[in-house]
Amino acid sequence: MSSIVKTEDLTFDYIRRDEEGNVEGIITAVDNVSLDVKEGEFIAILGHNGSGKSTLAKHINAILYPTEGTVYVDGKDTSDIRNLWDVRQCAGMIFQNPDNQIIGQIVEEDVGFGPENLGTPTEEIWQRVEESLRAVHMYELRKKSPNKLSGGQKQRVSIAGVLAMHPKCIILDEPTAMLDPEGRKEVIRSIRALNDVEKITIILITHNMEETIYADRIFVMDKGKIAMEGTPKEIFSKVERLQSLRLTVPQVTLLAHELKKAGLQLPDGILTAEELICQLS
């Protein structure tokens, strides 16, 4: 399968300046990261707050440009200004705060915003809006004001808004951090459906472990570097390592881990309750 997002030795420095514009300090937010995401994959990027995962995400959407190294989206170099709109259309982005990314006053108008920017003919915009809203099960609420929706619904509108631009890949930067458990479930369900049904590549950035167990691969970031990489099973079998990175594992995995520490014979990386029960009885 061809790669959709590829970074080569990506480094990004935040330069802090004082009032006169002199350089006060340099913070390396992303440090020499190379990763390769294949088309159709579901990738999760884990990391504590300030680990550089959001900065990395912003590179994929060409909001930030690498200080060193290169980022390719669908084979196009994001640093090349000529590729800017292609990159952003191909790799859509969802942000954390559900309120701060909805532009339209009505759900359907917001979903139409992206295609409008792309210069899509009116008739096709309507088609795309309908498809996208149906894909996230928000079609019935298309005439509502976003202010009247729950957090989870707002995030689904945002996802529809990106979907209407027909991207190949969607990057979600902590889309559930500000939601209640109900909203979280809704959003994760929508994301998984997009990956399964529409075959859209998903890059999910989060620090909520339960959300990553369906991912094909997980990258764990720390201090701007990729600290761990592997399948959920591989990652979650290293409970202590994760805890040292200010993360934790799902409750079930933690229970299994504690039982194992107490001397029980259990395999590593148990992710679901069924697995654990099966092993114990």
Binding site: H48, N49, Q96, A177, M178, H207, M209, R246, L247, T248
Partner: peptide, 8 residues
């Protein structure tokens, strides 16, 4: 604890 990472 809303919005904090597990350690936070």
């Amino acid at each position: 604890t809303a919005g904090l990472d597990p350690a936070g």
